[in-house]
Design a protein around this nucleic acid. Sequence first.
DNA 1: GATGAATGAGAATTCATTCAT
DNA 2: TATGAATGAATTCTCATTCAT
Lengths: 213, 213, 213, 213
Amino acid sequence: MAAANSRRVPRAERERQMLDAAVAVFARRGYRAASMDEIAEAAGVSKPLVYLYLNSKDELFSACIRREAAALTAAVRDAVEEGATPERQLWSGLLGFFEHAAVHPDGWTLLYSQARTVGEPFAAEVAVLRAEIVAFVAALIAAACGSRDVEAYAHALVGAAESLAGWAAAAPAPAPTGKELAASLMTFAWSGLSRALPAPDPEAAGGSSAAEG
Amino acid sequence: MAAANSRRVPRAERERQMLDAAVAVFARRGYRAASMDEIAEAAGVSKPLVYLYLNSKDELFSACIRREAAALTAAVRDAVEEGATPERQLWSGLLGFFEHAAVHPDGWTLLYSQARTVGEPFAAEVAVLRAEIVAFVAALIAAACGSRDVEAYAHALVGAAESLAGWAAAAPAPAPTGKELAASLMTFAWSGLSRALPAPDPEAAGGSSAAEG
Amino acid sequence: MAAANSRRVPRAERERQMLDAAVAVFARRGYRAASMDEIAEAAGVSKPLVYLYLNSKDELFSACIRREAAALTAAVRDAVEEGATPERQLWSGLLGFFEHAAVHPDGWTLLYSQARTVGEPFAAEVAVLRAEIVAFVAALIAAACGSRDVEAYAHALVGAAESLAGWAAAAPAPAPTGKELAASLMTFAWSGLSRALPAPDPEAAGGSSAAEG
Amino acid sequence: MAAANSRRVPRAERERQMLDAAVAVFARRGYRAASMDEIAEAAGVSKPLVYLYLNSKDELFSACIRREAAALTAAVRDAVEEGATPERQLWSGLLGFFEHAAVHPDGWTLLYSQARTVGEPFAAEVAVLRAEIVAFVAALIAAACGSRDVEAYAHALVGAAESLAGWAAAAPAPAPTGKELAASLMTFAWSGLSRALPAPDPEAAGGSSAAEG
DNA sequence: GATGAATGAGAATTCATTCAT
DNA sequence: TATGAATGAATTCTCATTCAT
């Protein structure tokens, strides 16, 4: 985890190193269990330097969240094909999301697992990020099918995506690719399980009918 | 949360009180941030008694997880209508899940948010619980539609359910009922968004086709 | 400085021991330079116990100030002969003050030297104590001679007393006794320097006569 | 306090700037609580420069004390009217003291409050200064009235002066002037409180008359 | 069955001080 | 002359854990 680093590094570079190390440590240990000692060591610098540049554990964690959140949203935004059909936008957005999560597992863990569990200042920041994503997805869904209940569907879709990302991250050797995950999720979300295969008459035994019951 | 409880309570009862308090505190604070002091005070007993009965913070947390996991799986198992169609089983299982999560928000938070973020001994326990649920769901899906890719669908479905439960827990005053959540998710998962409403020709623009691209 | 102490001491007793140690250390080192480690060691206990009972360095210091201030004012109050002439009251009050300062040099140092130099919360507490003493002295002066400018005189007298106390504390072996100090100050303050000598019969007037009482 | 000062300043000037800043910061915070960072910033230079010129925190503090002590003694010495009567000399010295203290509150605070509380190397330096002043005052008193007990009187007088200076420094808006303080103290010390009022003609004797002279 | 008294180990944070340039 | 980069050594405070009763 430590770092091979030379002395006398310019500040911007050092800050990046520190954030890299901090994201990794926070992701692995969680906010409370991560120690500034471990982060400093992972960054290959002394603890006082971390404080000199990033002020406190709180601010450091916050900076990590903001950086990773920005990176994630940028990845998704860049991936979305503007002007395409909503379905296609959703597909490309999911692809961007899965690929980013696969390439930055620590950032993903930080946002998904750790930041939500650390009571206030931080949970709020992540909640905002998540709310933005849900809103974006909800808009796409609404554009695509005008459904009511859009919010619930959006939450379901986002949760499904997160779950798949986590599954892929923990999966053994030949982990599903981003494309495979996106494809599964699009099938799942767009056509439904009843379509996913043979069942000829999904409506007959369907959830809605059950719901009516 | 604290309690003025009478002295000389039988051991089983005392343990229950302690676990109740611990689940509440762990859910609110997370494993690391929760202190044995706070738990003991919330339970209305002295700290040494907590140690006498539950040995250590680790074991206490572990006991909390096991109790809540057992309660959740029991709730789901009891809710499932055996012998019904897979769809119907899935529906009833989801309903049981949402209702249990709504009634036991602390237990739900403990399992969903906290236990996953606390490195090893515990994450494994929760992973097992989750794997069981996913396997159960996967079996239902396979029974219903024989789909390949069943595992991905199951993870997606479980993640969607968790996300909806979290959304409902955080929602303002008239939170969605378990029935509503289950209905939304069944529609979403079974029929797909393309069916969710008007779109006349879901297949034409479908996710699978996009996936092929 | 350390303490021979037995384990398992009741709380009230332990707190007293800790305050004794803290007063000594704060007096010798000053607030900032005193370390909780040193205080704990001087009290013969572990640091956590100090925190358990007294919460923080701030509160500990504050408790020291309050205790010593209360002791000092009680000593002076008890020494003042109520109902006597203002001069005699002043004399007896000064005597009480000097004797208390001589017997409790650490408490005296704490109040006089240390507490004043520590920025806010504490300086205010000591300022209040001092203001009370000045007001008391001012009242005596006013009663005795109805002078205007009473406030300035009172400040001068109190400052003179403090200075003498400090001098006596630092003086070599046969330090002036409280009685001697009080006599000097009474002469000084009551009759003035112009009287201090030219007066052929110093014994006749001022402090010494009072001292005989 | 901070300063935007130009680069390439000659050494003597820079040292003065640093001492100015250091006196201000030490006076406000005390020795321990003052940080070299704050001092450097207040001086408008980088920390290494402070070390280059003044070597260490200890030496810096010591330099501050010596400079302010020299300034104070110079102010008093210059104010004393040599050749005049002892009473008149005392009066003019007090006046010089009060006026200097009023004009240099930071220096005064440094010497009076802070330096005494910082245990050894420094307390000694200040003690020397104080001893010199006391000796000077004692000589005047002895010259004026030949009193025995001169040392106690001198300590009392010096303490009274310090107390009045501190009172004036903390006093609200129309703080007593140096002249008023000196007059009060001369009256107090020379004629005594017993004279302060009953005396039908206070003006005749004591400080004010001296002041007029 | 229950607790008041006590602590070892470790966490965040700050500070005086020094290189390398 | 002057500084940006960097750190060893404290210091305050917290916590899980254990005795002795």
